[in-house]
Design a protein around this nucleic acid. Sequence first.
DNA 1: CCGTTTTATTGATTTAAATCAATTAACGGA
DNA 2: TCCGTTAATTGATTTAAATCAATAAAACGG
Lengths: 273, 273
Amino acid sequence: MAIPQSDEFSILMNKRPNLQQCTDPQTECIACPIRKMALFRGVPKKELGWTQEFRDAQYLLPARKTLYREGDTAHSIYTLFDGWIILFKILDNGKRQILRFVLPGDFFGFQVNGTGAAAGYTHGAQALIESTLCAFPRTRLRSMMEKQPQLAIGLAEMGMHDMTLCQHHLIGTGRKNARESIAFLLLELFYRVRMQMQNGFDEATNSIIFPLTQEDIGDAIGLTSVHVNRVLKEMEREELIRCQRKRLTILDEETLMEIGQFDPGMIAPKELV
Amino acid sequence: MAIPQSDEFSILMNKRPNLQQCTDPQTECIACPIRKMALFRGVPKKELGWTQEFRDAQYLLPARKTLYREGDTAHSIYTLFDGWIILFKILDNGKRQILRFVLPGDFFGFQVNGTGAAAGYTHGAQALIESTLCAFPRTRLRSMMEKQPQLAIGLAEMGMHDMTLCQHHLIGTGRKNARESIAFLLLELFYRVRMQMQNGFDEATNSIIFPLTQEDIGDAIGLTSVHVNRVLKEMEREELIRCQRKRLTILDEETLMEIGQFDPGMIAPKELV
DNA sequence: CCGTTTTATTGATTTAAATCAATTAACGGA
DNA sequence: TCCGTTAATTGATTTAAATCAATAAAACGG
């Protein structure tokens, strides 16, 4: 299947040196296995033909590479097809705050400052592991939504879900101690990977792929990597978790949920009505 | 002008004992002065007639009263017409995290767990000062959006704006110290009140109405009221601000912006495209 | 496989903010 | 205007987490 190269494509490739176009895209939108949880969840299958037209192309972003930086001109919005991406912001003092962990099916890149051609991303985006992205030109987003109101509703619903996660992170950094906050984050990511990543979860060992460094964890919840390490080590000594070799194993889910005040329902996707 | 009492009205009045219906609503939706920044921003004026039909009624919520608690059945979504409301969550340990400050024109009450009749609010809502609300029955939200896609786009845009604020709060609690975090919050609220509240801003003194207690400030950014007090006092000694008698005066905006790493553009309402 | 660069780990010390504890000031209602 | 309650203020002390510092262990790129 050939995907036509739009104008946006060449722009995108110039501006995003780390991207490689997928020569053999894995799916058409209509058959997309993650569609049910993604932006197009509410869009009837027969309508998905035109989604394909809007879509720019599928791209591959290698592990640890930057997709865009804060302030970069925002040409595209993205759906993550496969992989793991972080959105973050660097402060004046050099510290980094991770704003969001993007997993397959999640939609990102729509938060910008300014409008039209002057729109610039409010945050940076970087891959933790090799990731496959579907890119949609921003310029067509509004007409897409006008053509298919379900899309706007879907966008609002996803926004609501992201908001819930952001608020829980806020609670974590604001009103929980390191142990509680880390327990919550580990469980959140564990449940999300289990739901969203085809190959991320290993049922036999109750473990997930976990590409975060201890510094990443710290930057997500406002701690130093040193302190994250101490807390993780203690949790390992208590046989609550095992966190090694880019794999996170949950050994005592119940206790961990109590510590983190975590309930899977809290992070389940929401419907608007 | 008589507003018909819907079924939802009686439900609402039973479930929300603090609410009083406005006998003389201040405006029809079509003439609403805050519409331009609210949910109906994008809706053409000639279409606003039906908004009126969807709207339940206008209500008055006295100062310091609770509108709803976390877990309460979610019958309505709200637009704040006038006043000041906080959305918050109480943790197991009794601590409170303020999630959002709602100012006139803001839309809230749509974050729920569960669907349909089982939907319950994920957070509590309480008035800081006497507030006037427009209530819309949740059950009609989807049909409203299908009738008027602009509404869904507007909702997505407002969600994006709220998300930006939430992310900035996350940065504040996660990666800023008390002084920086407080400076940012004061400026954010100062700018928002100036933009959103007709009577909130006094140009002569460069001050705003500021009904937060020092405990509220602390609960918003993850500090104790004792520490908030010390930082505020120091800022007053430095002639950066004056914060007394429910009024906040900004004396040295420039320095304060530097301390808080604040830029008004960061919190400006965003457009989706 | 090997040198290089990141990450993880652990100990010693410091510090920003919490906690504990009183007072004083302001506010709201009778 | 008085009284009871809530909010603000200030000092003394403790503590969770940061910082500083030094290896050890993994991961990576040829």
